[in-house]
Amino acid sequence: MKKIDVSAELMEALAEMAAHAQGDASRLVTHTVVVPEDIDVADIRKALGLTRPEFCRRFGLDVRAVQDWEQKRRRPDRAARAYLRVIQHNPAAVEAALHAA
């Protein structure tokens, strides 16, 4: 097991913060998050082989909201679209996170 030098990591983090505060972003790590503008909720649910109530119970969603999304009466907000995208790509991770004690 590798031993971590916490003081060295803190000093490095402080140096990065100071550089950033002075306008130097060259050492920053950035990520681009892509949230789809449109998402087919029914396709996601059907790909998992779940009924609407099962899908909602499993992922903590409101049945009426999912019904409205599937029937295009409403559009999921940005956070819901991001959540649905995660469900689409890794439903097991979502379930594990939601069922963790």
Rank of each mutant, 00 (worst) to 15 (best):
E12M: 13
L48P: 10
K46Q: 11
R58I: 04
G23Y: 02
H20Q: 13
A8C: 02
D68N: 14
R57V: 06
D5T: 06
L14N: 00
V86W: 03
K72L: 09
Q22W: 01
T30D: 00
L48D: 00
A21C: 08
G60Y: 14
K2Q: 06
A25P: 00
A79D: 01
S26T: 14
W69M: 02
R27T: 13
D40Y: 07
V6S: 02
V41F: 14
D40I: 02
V63T: 09
A80S: 11
Q22Y: 10
A13G: 02
K2G: 06
R75S: 11
K3D: 01
E9K: 13
A80P: 01
E16P: 00
G23R: 12
A21H: 10
V86P: 00
T51K: 12
L14P: 00
G49Y: 03
M11C: 09
A79Y: 04
R73K: 15
L28E: 11
P76C: 09
R85A: 06
E37K: 15
R52A: 03
V29S: 14
A8F: 04
A42L: 08
R52L: 15
K72F: 05
G60M: 08
A15I: 06
S7A: 11
G23I: 14
R27I: 01
E37V: 09
E54I: 01
E16K: 14
L14K: 12
D43G: 09
I87L: 13
F59K: 04
D40T: 02
P76E: 05
A25K: 10
D24M: 09
M11T: 04
E16S: 12
P36C: 13
P76R: 04
A18N: 05
M17L: 12
Q88D: 09
T51H: 03
T32V: 14
E70Q: 14
I87H: 07
P76Y: 10
R45N: 06
Q88A: 15
L10E: 13
A82V: 02
V29A: 15
E12A: 15
V41S: 07
L50A: 05
R73H: 04
A13F: 06
V35S: 08
D40H: 14
R27P: 01
R57S: 10
L48M: 15
R58S: 13
L10P: 04
I4P: 01
K3V: 10
R75N: 08
L48Y: 07
Q71I: 03
R78F: 09
R64L: 04
L84W: 07
L84K: 11
V34G: 03
H20Y: 12
V34K: 13
A42E: 03
T51D: 05
D5F: 02
R73E: 07
V34A: 08
E70Y: 05
R78Q: 06
E54R: 13
L48R: 08
I39E: 00
E16L: 11
E12H: 06
M11H: 06
D38I: 12
R27E: 12
G23V: 05
M11D: 05
P53F: 05
L84I: 03
Q22M: 10
D68V: 01
L28D: 09
R58M: 15
A80V: 08
A79K: 09
G60N: 11
A8S: 14
E9D: 12
S26R: 12
V35C: 12
